[in-house]
């Protein structure tokens, strides 16, 4: 087993764990840290699956995209709570 395969196995196991924790958590806002772990693991795995220079941009775009999405969901949730 090369270091790349070992690292891919670790990333994939963490992604599965985080995905299951996202569904099991009942509080909506507390789901977001688990979603963040999941996107870390997926961004690491796509780099390990296909090492190519464009993959750096793909991983960064994916990671920044999910971060922006979490930011927007949490901000809208906070605004909605305040207005009620």
């Amino acid at each position: 087993m090369t270091p790349e395969e070992a690292a891919l196995t670790v990333c994939v196991v963490v992604a599965a764990y985080a995905g299951i924790r996202v569904l099991l958590e009942r509080n909506t806002v507390k789901k977001l840290p688990f979603l963040n772990v999941c996107s870390f693991a997926v961004a690491g795995s796509i780099v390990l699956i296909l090492p190519h220079p464009l993959t750096i941009i793909a991983a960064a775009a994916y990671f920044i995209g999910t971060t922006l999405e979490s930011n927007a969901i949490a901000s809208t949730y906070a605004g909605g709570i305040r207005e009620e």
Partner: peptide, 27 residues
């Protein structure tokens, strides 16, 4: 939040086939 979990599962399959431009657009 569950919808973005679907995207997290789909993007590695797109990358595995080598369509990196599609993966960037999807992301």
């Amino acid at each position: 939040i569950s919808l973005s979990l679907i995207a997290a599962g789909v993007i590695p399959f797109v990358v595995d086939r080598g369509y990196l431009d599609v993966a960037i657009a999807l992301a």
